[in-house]
């Protein structure tokens, strides 16, 4: 049974960043990743808001700066069991390997909201309804695939905010924080790929909290003519030519509006990933959604109620990529302190 200083569960941005910090401090680190490749959601995004940095650049930076001799990375590995033995944590993986470590860092991240759960939006039913993740894949290829071919019409693309966020009907009371600005970013990218198109964004509130977010929103209006409609889309119906009609209330006009679209992008929210849910319940540190609960949000946000178990990133709550990275930084410091005290 091999012993490590620290086992990091989850090889996404948070896990890799913590691995980078800790391995450079010469701690013996193990990273367990359930997918075939490391990188987590960074592999699914094309460019990051608000400055359009390619996600691959962030991933490259992390992998290049991990100190190889101190780090072992094991992919296609998920954790099935975790328990304490003599002041050490014993982690059992899906291949029945067992590892021992002084500390464990949970960075199991999030999954996007399953858009099929909002049936009225017709994801999986109408071919022209896609999610923001699907759109990211298209943007990576540099083309937007419209399900219906046409050449004689200006394309119309709609973004629908808060799909699986701020919605008791889908069980998620929280705001996913990333979707507002992500839709603005994607709207700009769509306009760049298909300049001769009309882009509409249906929103409840636009929460442009981050630095440069408001500026990007302004640019999307000023330079890219993106239209914003304040109102939640209530239903989506197909047309005879296989496009869809959106219905919403234009709350600024107090009038219902409807419009036909070629492509509808659902801005899916963030839910705890399966791994997050499993681990948080295994350790009994889960909240009502399955997120990992930290010890204290203000002063001990990377600690959990289990000594030696640390947490960072979106397995805790909804964070942006830069926030995740910083959270992993502070987790690395907490862990180093913890290991030094031993």
């Amino acid at each position: 049974m091999e012993k490590f200083d620290i086992i990091i569960i989850g090889g996404g941005p948070a896990g890799l960043n913590a691995a980078m910090r800790l391995s450079n401090m010469n701690y013996k680190t193990l990273v367990l990743e359930k997918e075939k490749v490391i990188g987590g959601k960074l592999n699914q995004w094309d460019k990051l808001f608000p400055d359009f940095t390619p996600a691959i650049d962030v991933l490259k930076y992390l992998t290049e700066n991990i100190k190889q001799e101190n780090t072992q990375i094991s992919t296609s590995t998920s954790v099935t069991k975790i328990d304490k033995s003599d002041n050490l944590w014993k982690v059992t993986d899906s291949n029945n390997n067992e590892y021992l470590a002084d500390a464990v860092l949970i960075t199991t991240g999030f999954d996007v909201f399953d858009a099929r759960r909002k049936e009225e939006y017709g994801y999986g039913i109408y071919p022209c309804v896609i999610t923001s993740v699907d759109l990211e894949k298209m943007l990576e290829t540099g083309t937007i695939n419209f399900p219906i071919e046409t050449s004689d019409r200006r394309r119309r693309i709609a973004f629908i905010q808060c799909v699986g966020s701020r919605d008791e009907k889908s069980g998620n009371h929280f705001c996913s924080r990333n979707c507002c600005i992500c839709a603005v970013k994607q709207a700009i990218e769509v306009k760049e790929v298909v300049p001769d198109s009309d882009v509409y964004c249906f929103y409840m509130d636009l929460r442009m909290f981050g630095q440069h977010y408001e500026e990007l929103y302004r640019r999307s209006q000023q330079e890219f003519n993106v239209n914003f409609v304040r109102g939640r889309v209530s239903e989506i119906a197909p047309t005879f030519d296989n496009r869809v009609v959106l219905k919403a209330e234009d709350t600024l006009l107090s009038r219902p509006v409807k419009m036909t679209f070629d492509l509808v992008v659902l801005m899916v929210g963030m839910n705890p990933s399966e791994g997050t849910k499993t681990l948080s319940s295994l350790l009994d540190i889960n909240d009502e959604y399955g997120y990992v609960v930290s010890q204290d949000e203000h002063v001990a946000d990377n600690l959990t109620n289990k000594a030696g178990v640390f947490v960072a990133g979106t397995c805790k709550r909804q964070l942006t990529v830069p926030e995740t990275m910083k959270d992993a930084d502070s987790a690395a410091i907490e862990i180093a302190n913890f290991l030094n005290r031993r």
């Binding site: 009609v245 219905k247 234009d250 006009l253 009038r255 219902p256 509006v257 409807k258 419009m259 036909t260």
Partner: peptide
């Protein structure tokens, strides 16, 4: 009955 819906199409 005239619909109040703004038909953007």
């Amino acid at each position: 009955v005239v619909s109040r819906t703004l038909d953007l199409d």
